[in-house]
Design a binder for these strands. Structure first.
Length: 599
RNA sequence: GCGCCCGUAGCUCAAUUGGAUAGAGCGUCUGGCUACGGACCAGAAGGUUAGGGGUUCAAAUCCCUUCGGGCGUACCA
């Protein structure tokens, strides 16, 4: 959908240049810079190429046409930009006047709708989640939500890393230092309890490594990894892994018990963040899948066997070198497992597109994974995407669990929610504490964290400043939520005053710059969503919501709504407010951020 | 060493994918409630887009180069 005058302009230009096919170009209205005079801008540079005429000539022609159009109040041409001021009534008629149409056109056409599988989170069951996981979860969840919002069929998948040497480390430490404690006996959340034993293991390992090096100076140059199996506790962990793989019942029982604690803890964290999955795969059940693939592809000659028995694939032609897929001892490596699970996911969901939300340090891994799958001849391997996101750093530097500088997810949530609560209490004053204060604070606190992570392009490494994030002013989630709350408040007041809310109002009355700006912004919403979905970048949506909320606050400050000069104008402005609120709320929900009724 | 990514206002980040005089928030400074909610609004200061060269009507964006950072480069996950 577009402004009528621009639709007409397109028809006019098409008939002026009949040799150009209409499907090859489009007129997309752009926002007019604030210092310029106009509601929207037509940038003729963009499509002049198609006509093989000078941008200036096209702009001149467009200007003349627009000046004679009944909807246009005035228009001016600067270089190849045509700034158009549309008459208030006509502008609103084409935008907020067709509000249902705007909301409907957020969906991509039926033919472009895909089955999209989004894998994210993928936690390890040996420690609680931290800020880095929160970014992953938030990006994954909002990406899935965004894809769904524009009409795709989405499956959210989690693949929990619940086996391996790191789990055994926690188990060994628990056996030695746990004294049979449980989440109940300690009052600790399960994932935190298990994480504490992981830390204990690390402490003990460090001690043994130091002793080892002190007693054997010749080992000084060796890395901790190289010496791992030379420590007593390292060997114990390795033995436990072998026992686990052999199905030793005592080991399996302990593993099951500790994992169940972690899962219960994760469940709580996920629930608080609003994270859900259509399905959760467990690596303990999938890690052997890739091995069967190896035999088949060896026969086909796609994979090759080395003299020592290791299996590899040659990716030299794709500049990715040679990649080992099976160790010489016959065990599988990381990428082998990923081959297996990718096929499993394909078999279970037959997606058109698979997306992995995984940190950018694994870019190379996914390049090879996709290359191998292409070599294996799967046509769908063309539609695999690694949505790589950057790390989260702190003002003090990188987060390092060993140095205890990680920001724990649960702690962060608690802190933000309690800050939101005290901020809310301060505002309402003594003796007027609303009943739903806790729910409200939860929505605002969690919303602030999510928005703060989603306002950045996923690709960029970001700095998370806890001090700055506790503020609810400026470029934040609460700022957007606040605009909604204000409008809700107006709605309540209007209802009390007995004002009937109408869908048909006289848009001619809303002719101020602020009202038109709001309307123009609302019109952009479907394109913003679709652009964000195609870029797989939710920050496009956050930026837009901030702009829309800003436009609203400007309008709100400049014009009285419930005290408008007459009833007709009052109703028009209320309608404009409600449509604004609906877009803000829809956008926030698309980012998986809740909207409080009041703040 | 090689490969990929990045360098934008004091700080944190944008820039409609090559388009107007590079924009927001925070911080600093100055103003604004007899009002529908001040988690707000208006204004000011702040930039040779790391440096240099090239491509064109037009470059933060594309190419080359220097410098400075990050991440990879496993029979780890």
């Amino acid at each position: 959908m577009n402004y009528k005058c621009l639709d007409d302009l397109k028809t006019f230009l098409s008939s002026s240049y009949p040799e150009i096919k209409t499907g090859e170009w489009d007129i997309v209205p752009e926002t007019c810079p604030p210092e310029m005079d106009g509601d929207i801008t037509v940038n003729c540079f963009r499509f002049a190429k198609t006509f093989r005429k000078s941008p200036d000539e096209i702009a001149q022609k467009s200007l003349e046409f627009l000046l004679s159009h009944p909807d246009v109040e005035k228009a001016e041409k600067i270089k190849a930009f045509v700034n158009v001021t549309i008459k208030g009534g006509a502008l609103h008629r084409d935008t907020v006047g067709k509000f249902c149409l705007i909301m409907e056109s957020c969906n991509v056409p039926e033919s472009q709708r895909k089955r999209v599988l989004v894998e994210f989170s993928a936690p390890n069951t040996n420690k609680p989640q931290h800020l880095g996981h929160v970014r992953n979860n938030t990006i994954g969840m909002s990406l899935a939500s965004l894809m769904k919002r524009v009409g795709h069929h989405v499956f959210r998948i989690n693949l929990v890393n619940d086996r391996g040497i790191h789990i055994c480390k926690s188990m060994i430490a628990y056996q030695r230092f746990g004294n049979g404690c449980t989440p109940e006996s300690t009052g600790k959340k399960g994932d935190h309890l298990v994480g504490d034993f992981y830390v204990k293991f690390d402490g003990e390992l460090r001690k043994q490594l130091k002793d080892l090096k002190d007693q054997n100076p010749e080992l000084k140059e060796k890395t901790d990894e190289e010496l791992f199996l030379q420590t007593e506790i390292g060997r114990a962990a390795q033995e436990m892994l072998l026992k686990w793989e052999a199905g030793d019942s005592e080991t399996i029982d302990l593993w099951k018990k500790m994992n169940s604690w972690v899962f219960a803890g994760f469940e709580e964290t996920y629930k608080r963040m609003g994270i859900e999955f259509e399905h959760t795969y467990l690596e303990s059940q999938t890690y052997l899948l890739g091995k069967t693939l190896v035999e088949e592809n060896l026969k086909k000659g796609i994979f090759l066997k080395r003299d020592d028995g290791a299996v590899f694939i040659d990716l030299e032609d794709m500049k990715l070198g040679k990649k080992v897929l099976l160790r010489s001892d016959g065990t599988s490596v990381y990428i082998t497992q990923d081959l297996g699970t990718t096929l499993l996911k394909y078999r279970d969901y037959s997606p058109d597109i698979q997306i992995w939300v995984v940190g950018d340090e694994q870019i190379h891994h996914f390049k090879t994974l996709f290359a191998v799958l292409k070599k294996m001849g799967f046509p769908w391997a063309e539609n695999l995407h690694h949505l790589s996101y950057g790390m989260v750093n702190l003002p003090t530097g990188k987060m390092k669990s060993r140095e205890g500088t990680v920001v724990d997810a649960d702690d962060l949530f608690d802190e933000m929610v309690s800050l939101a609560k005290s901020a809310a209490m301060e505002r309402v004053g003594e003796g007027k504490i609303p009943e739903d204060i806790d729910r409200r604070s939860e929505i605002i606190g969690i919303g602030a964290i999510k928005f703060n992570l989603l306002k950045f392009n996923p690709k960029t490494t970001i700095m998370f400043d806890p001090q700055a994030s506790i503020k609810f002013e400026g470029d934040t989630g609460p700022y957007v939520q606040y605009a909604c709350a204000r409008i809700n408040s107006i709605g309540r007041k209007a209802k009390e005053a007995g004002i009937l809310i109408q869908t048909e109002v006289n848009w001619n009355l809303a002719s101020s710059r602020e009202e038109k700006e709001l309307s123009v912004r609302i019109m952009q919403y479907p394109d913003v969503l679709k652009m964000a979905a195609s870029k797989m970048d939710s920050s496009t949506v956050s930026e837009y919501l901030l702009d829309l909320a800003k436009s609203f606050n400007r309008f709100y400050r400049e014009h009285s709504i419930l005290n408008s000069d007459n009833d007709e104008l009052k109703k028009t402005r209320i309608a404009l407010c409600f449509r604004t609120r609906d877009v803000l709320a829809d956008g926030l929900r698309t980012l998986t951020i809740d909207v409080p009724e009041a703040m």
